[in-house]
């Protein structure tokens, strides 16, 4: 009799825990997918028209302003963006994302010392993007570039090195 009672009780608790676990999984799994999987919306895949090649002086870093479209949740923004570009020769241009690779502060070109200097934590970069000093963990991030018909084009996303 007592044995039968124990069996009944463990049957009940097994069901309570089992069904409870299924319900929890039924809520938790969709929630995890919903929060953690990247939205299907396409990030802009087009190369961006950034500047006229002729407006860039060779060997001298210049900050340029260009427009690009960016998907922000349910919005597509057409916004201004900047980049530091260095024209190497007729067909080759390097373009750096304008944020320091340490904590994403805006850095600037310092003409007298011939370095990129970040004012936040004193990271310094050479004209080819290499870290010279400070806490920056990697060289400056770059846009891939392409020259087409005298126009400088940027890749849609920044590439980390």
């Amino acid at each position: 009799m007592e044995n039968q009672e124990t069996t009944r009780r463990s049957f009940y608790s097994a069901f309570i825990y089992g069904l409870g676990a299924i319900i929890s999984a039924g809520l938790a799994l969709p929630a995890a997918a919903y929060l953690l999987i990247k939205p299907k919306s396409q990030q802009a895949k087009q190369w961006v028209d950034a500047a006229d090649l002729n407006s860039l002086r060779p060997g001298e870093p210049q900050e340029i302003v260009f427009r690009r479209s960016r998907v922000d949740g349910w919005r597509v923004l057409n916004e201004k963006s900047t980049a530091w570009v260095v024209r190497l020769d007729d067909q080759n241009v390097v373009a750096y994302s304008p944020q320091c690779t340490h904590l994403a502060c805006a850095y600037h070109w310092d003409d007298s010392s011939h370095k990129f200097i970040c004012p936040c934590h004193a990271s310094e970069f050479s004209i080819d993007g290499k870290v010279l000093a400070g806490p920056a963990p990697r060289p400056l991030d770059r846009y891939a570039t392409r020259v087409d018909n005298g126009k400088l084009l940027f890749s849609p996303t920044v590439q980390k090195t």
């Binding site: 969709p30 929630a31 997918a33 919903y34 999987i37 939205p39 299907k40 919306s41 949740g73 349910w74």
Partner: peptide, 15 residues
């Protein structure tokens, strides 16, 4: 944003 939830997000339509 609701349209974004149901068309762009995995599990959004279910939730």
């Amino acid at each position: 944003s609701l349209r974004y939830i149901v068309t762009e997000l995995t599990g959004g339509r279910l939730i």
